[in-house]
Design a protein around this nucleic acid. Structure first.
Lengths: 127, 127
DNA sequence: TTGGTGTGCTAAGTCTACCAAGCACCCGGG
DNA sequence: CCCGGGTGCTTGGTAGACTTAGCACACCAA
């Protein structure tokens, strides 16, 4: 669609801001699309479409781009709306939470520990 | 629900895959695939495939599942390898730490829990 | 002028995350 | 025996994330 020099910047989706963000960061780093794409190991046309908001990149690609731009993955995910700004960062130290996440424990062991913990703590420290 | 007690368990050192993690968390929450799929707003066959490692879910789906399981999105992303784990997320350290910080427990209870936990976890890697 | 190299953008195709429907199995009741 | 309802798993198909090839324009050299 050979449009003229005046291009209307219309946010057709919520994630077009992500494209703007990436583009500004890329220009800030003085990288061409092909350069950034090379570093991030994606194709340059795809980067173009991402920057213009046509596609929503997967988290994997997002991480690669963030890495190439020397940004944290969290920042990228937040920009992409995959993470709430920093409410999620503050992970509470719940005992049950920690137990559930422990890879050394079997499911049965977790259930046992949680049962014991609840009997100690006197009720639902629900997680 | 209770399938054979002799199930192939993957190496204890880490979650062999995201699917195993999700399945454990689901079983820990006493949810069937259809129930979790319903809450997470994905299809039950897809959940089955994800749990068996056939597909790698998108961050969006990951977030939904995390929410349905009352886990933080960060935790899920970390499990999926999309985020590097922070000190906050460090799990086997986390259980003892969380126990020590819990104001509901007496010192004796904490010691008991930690002893049980260590017996379960195999006593390795303290600290 | 022509040619080579830079930029970003477009078109057509591949791969895969994801869904709807259905299968095989097991259990309790008629 | 045959149902009805529970479990997890398989099949076939769709949408979109992503790639490889190629377009159009701009700049500098011969």
């Amino acid at each position: 669609m050979t449009d003229g020099p005046e291009e209307d910047r219309e946010p057709r989706t919520a994630w077009s801001s992500l494209g703007d963000f990436i583009r500004s960061q890329r220009e800030l780093a003085n990288l061409s699309m092909r350069q950034l794409a090379e570093i991030a190991k994606i194709s340059n046309p795809y980067l173009s479409q991402v920057e213009r908001g046509l596609y929503k990149p997967s988290a994997d690609v997002l991480k690669q781009i963030a890495n190439a731009l020397h940004l944290s993955a969290e920042t990228m995910y937040t920009q992409a709306g995959l993470l709430d700004s920093n409410a999620e960062q503050d992970n509470h130290h719940g005992v049950e939470h920690a137990i559930k996440l422990d890879p050394r424990l079997t499911v049965d062991q977790k259930e046992a520990l949680i049962r014991i913990y609840r009997s100690f703590a006197g009720g639902g420290s629900g997680g």
